[in-house]
Simulated scan of single mutants.
Amino acid sequence: MVKLLLCDDHAVVRSGLRMLLDGRHGIEVVGEASEGGEAIRMALELKPDVVLMDVSMPHGMDGLAATAELKQRLPETNILILTMHDDDEYLFRAIQIGASGYILKNAPHEELVSAIRSVAAGDAYLYPTATKRLMSEYLNRLKSGAEPPDAYDTLSEREKEVLGWIARGYSNKEIADNLIISVKTVETHKANLMEKLGLKTRPELIKFAVKKGLLNFE
């Protein structure tokens, strides 16, 4: 069963989503939040598999800011952006800060269910035209001679921090003690950064860190 937390500033939208999803398709709605700050607090308490996050919430923390903070504090939770904004700026920013998916509010409910289950399984989900735009942007960069995005830039600040500690030879337990987080959270950060960097072993991480000039022993 996929544990889902809803976050939208409109009560009628949350109610409709709960009626559509709760107890169906292997999905359990474990909570509702009306703005980003509340979503973060509830996620830390409820530990959902997926947060379905609206973007525009004018009476509190917006969805993108909440997504960025939540990925820092609860990296194992996957976030699916559900929005009315079919906009490149929102799309690219959401992906950059760690959202696992991006889907429009006018999508068929079967597509929404599929997106939730995909991100819960650890996969990414983008609606079809968004995928085309991302590929077009990437191909345009290649044609113009621009360098592809640096994989290091896709890491969160916490992942970069963990990478630095790993590169300096600290164990997961020592990193957890220094950052005042759990060993499990360190392991999650390590797994995420290795996936983003396309690396598989600790020596590869260290080699990458050396190239990036991250070995500061001061």
Score class of each variant (00 low, 15 high):
residue 95 I to P: 01
residue 1 M to D: 01
residue 207 K to D: 05
residue 165 W to A: 07
residue 27 I to D: 00
residue 138 Y to F: 14
residue 156 S to D: 06
residue 155 L to A: 04
residue 145 G to H: 10
residue 33 A to K: 12
residue 12 V to C: 04
residue 123 D to T: 13
residue 133 R to L: 06
residue 53 M to E: 04
residue 162 V to F: 00
residue 157 E to V: 15
residue 196 K to R: 12
residue 158 R to A: 10
residue 92 F to Q: 14
residue 144 S to F: 03
residue 153 D to M: 10
residue 134 L to S: 07
residue 213 G to M: 05
residue 167 A to N: 08
residue 102 Y to A: 12
residue 83 T to V: 06
residue 126 L to A: 06
residue 109 H to K: 13
residue 196 K to V: 03
residue 178 N to V: 00
residue 115 A to C: 09
residue 149 P to M: 08
residue 16 G to S: 04
residue 127 Y to V: 08
residue 107 A to F: 03
residue 9 D to C: 01
residue 58 P to I: 05
residue 144 S to T: 12
residue 98 G to Y: 06
residue 98 G to R: 08
residue 33 A to V: 07
residue 194 M to K: 05
residue 14 R to S: 03
residue 64 L to I: 15
residue 86 D to N: 15
residue 103 I to G: 07
residue 92 F to A: 12
residue 177 D to P: 00
residue 216 N to C: 03
residue 139 L to C: 05
residue 182 S to C: 01
residue 159 E to V: 12
residue 14 R to Q: 01
residue 121 A to H: 07
residue 141 R to C: 05
residue 85 H to A: 09
residue 130 A to S: 15
residue 124 A to R: 15
residue 74 L to G: 02
residue 43 A to G: 08
residue 41 R to T: 07
residue 47 K to F: 00
residue 160 K to L: 04
residue 108 P to M: 01
residue 49 D to G: 06
residue 195 E to F: 09
residue 109 H to D: 13
residue 174 E to R: 15
residue 79 I to D: 10
residue 165 W to N: 03
residue 163 L to M: 14
residue 58 P to F: 09
residue 189 H to Y: 15
residue 42 M to I: 03
residue 60 G to I: 06
residue 217 F to D: 04
residue 15 S to I: 08
residue 47 K to T: 09
residue 148 P to F: 03
residue 195 E to H: 10
residue 212 K to F: 00
residue 179 L to G: 01
residue 48 P to N: 08
residue 110 E to I: 07
residue 168 R to C: 11
residue 74 L to V: 09
residue 41 R to L: 09
residue 193 L to A: 02
residue 84 M to S: 15
residue 111 E to L: 13
residue 28 E to G: 07
residue 77 T to F: 04
residue 35 E to K: 10
residue 86 D to Q: 08
residue 199 L to R: 00
residue 213 G to E: 04
residue 27 I to H: 01
residue 71 K to G: 00
residue 208 F to K: 12
residue 35 E to I: 10
residue 165 W to H: 15
residue 121 A to I: 10
residue 209 A to I: 01
residue 86 D to S: 11
residue 61 M to T: 14
residue 166 I to P: 02
residue 21 L to C: 05
residue 40 I to V: 11
residue 214 L to E: 01
residue 15 S to E: 11
residue 87 D to L: 07
residue 4 L to M: 00
residue 153 D to T: 12
residue 19 M to C: 02
residue 101 G to H: 14
residue 43 A to R: 12
residue 73 R to M: 09
residue 209 A to Y: 00
residue 205 L to C: 03
residue 105 K to A: 04
residue 183 V to P: 05
residue 207 K to I: 07
residue 171 S to L: 04
residue 179 L to N: 07
residue 86 D to A: 14
residue 25 H to Y: 15
residue 57 M to G: 01
residue 64 L to C: 08
residue 104 L to A: 08
residue 83 T to L: 10
residue 174 E to M: 14
residue 192 N to H: 14
residue 13 V to W: 01
residue 172 N to A: 11
residue 195 E to G: 13
residue 36 G to F: 02
residue 123 D to H: 15
residue 98 G to P: 13
residue 106 N to H: 14
residue 1 M to Y: 04
residue 120 A to R: 12
residue 59 H to Q: 15
residue 62 D to G: 02
residue 28 E to F: 04
residue 152 Y to H: 11
residue 14 R to A: 01
residue 161 E to L: 12
residue 176 A to C: 12
